[in-house]
Measured scan of single mutants.
Amino acid sequence: MDVFMKGLSKAKEGVVAAAEKTKQGVAEAAGKTKEGVLYVGSKTKEGVVHGVATVAEKTKEQVTNVGGAVVTGVTAVAQKTVEGAGSIAAATGFVKKDQLGKNEEGAPQEGILEDMPVDPDNEAYEMPSEEGYQDYEPEA
């Protein structure tokens, strides 16, 4: 019985440690998101679009440190934060509304985080759909 109880105690310690790591990862992701939003706020009209992409990228980098179902929630929060940063930029006159959601080359930025393969159960990952990809044929 002692062996059984000791095993359960060790398992509990492992769960607590994993929860603490997840909590730490979420806190880091939130900190990076805040950094990115402050970065966007300090940019001029020309830099705002690039700044919004930076927020998304920093958040995406930190999301990889967070495991399990938390990833889905962090990704949703990050996307809403990026959308909010863009709205703030438009409201303050840093950028025109028609410039939001495009990178410096004018290509749409939507789907940055949505296409990231995420499995809350950590069982399997699927690649994003290939609808947006084109076949590449090298020139002879």
Rank of each mutant, 00 (worst) to 15 (best):
A29M: 04
A29C: 09
Q134G: 11
I112L: 12
T92E: 06
A140F: 15
Y133D: 11
E126C: 14
K10T: 08
V55S: 01
N65H: 11
V63W: 11
E137F: 05
L8M: 02
A124I: 04
G67P: 06
E83I: 07
V77P: 03
V74W: 09
P128T: 10
L100Q: 05
M1A: 03
T81Y: 04
S87I: 04
I88H: 04
V82K: 14
M127S: 11
V3P: 00
E131T: 10
E57D: 05
G41I: 09
A69Q: 11
K10S: 03
D98L: 12
A27S: 14
V15E: 00
V82T: 04
K60W: 08
K43Q: 08
K34F: 11
N65I: 07
N122L: 07
P117R: 04
G86P: 02
N103D: 11
L100P: 01
G67N: 01
K43W: 12
Q62R: 07
G132R: 06
V66A: 07
Y39L: 02
E131W: 11
E83A: 12
K10D: 04
F4T: 00
P138Q: 13
G73C: 13
K34W: 01
E104G: 14
E57R: 06
E83F: 14
P128N: 14
V37S: 01
G7Y: 11
V77K: 04
E137N: 11
A19C: 06
V15C: 05
G67C: 07
V82W: 01
G101V: 10
K96P: 15
H50Q: 01
K23Y: 09
T92R: 01
E83W: 03
S9G: 04
A29K: 06
A11S: 00
A89Q: 03
V71S: 04
V49G: 04
A124Y: 10
Y136H: 13
K10M: 02
A89K: 08
E57P: 03
A89C: 10
E61K: 06
V16D: 01
K58G: 00
L38G: 08
T75H: 01
E130K: 06
V3Q: 05
G25N: 06
K96G: 02
Y133M: 13
G25A: 14
K80W: 15
Y136D: 02
G86T: 06
E110Q: 10
E57K: 14
A18K: 03
T33N: 02
A78G: 07
E139D: 07
E20L: 01
A27T: 09
A27F: 14
E13H: 08
T22F: 03
Y39H: 06
Q99E: 12
M1E: 00
E139G: 11
V118I: 09
D121R: 12
N103S: 07
A107R: 11
G73S: 06
V16W: 06
V49I: 14
D2Y: 13
G67H: 11
A27G: 06
E20D: 06
A91T: 01
K21R: 04
V37C: 09
G51C: 13
M1C: 00
E83V: 00
G31C: 12
H50N: 14
V74G: 03
G41W: 03
A19L: 15
Y133W: 09
A30D: 00
P108S: 14
A78E: 02
V74C: 11
G47E: 03
T64H: 05
A78W: 12
G132K: 15
S129Y: 09
V77A: 09
A19Q: 02
V66G: 02
V71M: 02
A53M: 15
D135Q: 10
E28Y: 09
G73Q: 12
K60A: 13
A29H: 03
G51L: 11
P128R: 12
